[in-house]
Amino acid sequence: MAGQSDPHLSLFSAEEVEFMAEDEMVEIVPNMRMDPLNLLCGDYGPFFPQMVTQVPVWLAIALKKRGKCTIRPPEWMSVESLTRILESERESQDSFQVLPFHYVEISRLLIDHARDDIPDIYMVRSLVEDIRDVRFHKIETSLESFEDARSSAVRIKNLSAMEVNIVRPFVGRALQAFYKHGSPDLVPNPDKVPNRWQPAADPVQKRPLRKR
């Protein structure tokens, strides 16, 4: 689905999206004392046994592989939390649940490299995949409803990095095509516009912030 016709300059590869995700912070529990790490990207440590500390994901995984710590999966990555999120995703046709911007990459990285630190890992993986699928499906159906939205701007509440990257060429093209060909009916019909693709603010009335 990742569009190939976009100028390659402006698309992020999957590896690059993962690279950016690796800078997100995660909690680790060191199992030994370690001197501080004064890196170009930041200063971390000193590390004490059993004292929870935050480091970037790439560093957490590297430390874990070197036997220096265990990783604490983030709160949202629990079975309870993901189950709740999946249910909400399924219930609301029009909106996306709040998830970290890099939820796809972070969950994949931790599942791949911190297997034994994640309780119920198979359940977690399966839930994340289901959530991805439901969200993708929502994106697909919403792309079809662009003729109702005003052409100039579209707001995307709660889309994650990877979803943005995949959707980018399609939304761009749909909006561009619409922008070029135009439509006499430029005032959005509030009944037809799905909430999630809220068009640019109507200057006449202040639109209330969307409820989550």
Binding site: S13, E15, E16, K65
Partner: peptide, 10 residues
């Protein structure tokens, strides 16, 4: 040309 990975592997 591609983002770097851990130079160490298992």
């Amino acid at each position: 040309m591609v983002p770097p990975k851990d130079p160490y592997i298992q």
